[in-house]
């Protein structure tokens, strides 16, 4: 887990420290805390990439800054009737928003498995979260190469 940015590492630890039954409660809490979109993005659905692997609509915007560390900003949009998807998005938002591009690229692709939710959630769900992370990393790589 040494590859994880510190904030994401703390979240993974938070999940692994609570009993399995409470992990869903924790995910629900995260789903409530997903930050609202800033107004400059809220009215521009065309700027978002859809994560089609998610079972419910999820859209994301990845912005890589021009600063030395290429600070990454993440924005997610998912409807309230999709709390599991929102919860995943919120974990990535809290764990990765504001991190350096390289530290996000170093996050292992199977990081969602580390949250200890694989028994409670169907394989499709887990793949949705893995896809979210994969798309974030792909967008960062593309923007760095541009």
């Amino acid at each position: 887990m040494s590859q994880l940015p510190s904030e994401l590492k703390e979240i993974v630890e938070e999940f692994s420290e609570v009993p399995e039954a409470e992990r869903l409660e924790l995910l629900l809490e995260y789903s409530r805390e997903l930050p609202a979109l800033p107004s400059r993005l809220a009215d521009h659905p065309e700027l978002f990439e859809q994560v089609v692997e998610c079972q419910s609509p999820l859209f994301l915007v990845v912005e890589v800054a021009e600063d030395a560390g290429h600070t990454v900003s993440l924005f997610f949009s998912a409807p309230p009737e999709a709390p599991t998807t929102r919860g995943f998005a919120s974990v990535l938002s809290a764990g990765l928003d504001g991190a350096d591009a390289n530290s996000i690229l170093a996050v292992p692709d199977d990081m969602p498995q580390q949250l200890g939710l694989t028994r409670a959630l169907s394989p499709l769900r887990m793949r949705g979260m893995t896809a979210m992370l994969g798309r974030i990393k792909r967008q960062i790589s593309e923007q760095l190469a541009a």
Partner: peptide, 9 residues
């Protein structure tokens, strides 16, 4: 539900 958290909302 399909979404395991939806009931709790």
């Amino acid at each position: 539900d399909e979404d395991i958290l939806l009931y709790s909302t």
